[in-house]
Design a protein around this nucleic acid. Structure first.
Length: 109
DNA sequence: ACATTGACGGAAA
DNA sequence: ATTTCCGCCAATG
């Protein structure tokens, strides 16, 4: 249970509703700031495993783009985010920094 | 067993 | 300023 993947899952599960975080932020929190790709890959694996268990739709790239949107359907990733009060426009979050939730700011302090 | 890819991000040119 | 390349670790082909 100490795999990079599981670690990512835990952090994502801790994301408050109405907030979003980036792959890089999670990677940095895990101590591997260059492993952002792995974070996304972990979520990708998560999707075919248990998408309902982890709010992966709250994880976007550092640009606020719904990079993983194609992995979500019924409803779209944007729909889910907007349902939480997040404004999404053209597959990108408006005022991304405003909704950004930094794990090391809330968890590590 | 080896090479390539992958929901990214930052550094270098 | 923009564009390109490299790095990270694991999984899949």
């Amino acid at each position: 249970m100490s795999d990079f993947f599981n670690d990512v899952y835990e952090v994502v599960k801790l994301i408050p509703k109405g907030r979003v975080t980036s792959y890089g932020a999670i990677g940095v929190y895990l101590g591997a700031k260059r492993s952002a790709r792995m974070v996304g890959f972990a979520l990708n694996s998560l999707n075919h495993n248990a998408e309902g268990q982890v709010p992966a739709h709250r994880v976007v790239n550092r640009l606020g783009q719904l990079s993983g949107a194609p992995a979500f359907s019924n409803p779209s990733m944007a729909e889910r985010l907007m349902a939480e009060g997040i404004v999404v426009e053209d597959g990108q979050i408006v005022d991304f920094a405003k909704y950004f939730w930094n794990p090391m700011d809330e968890l590590s302090l």
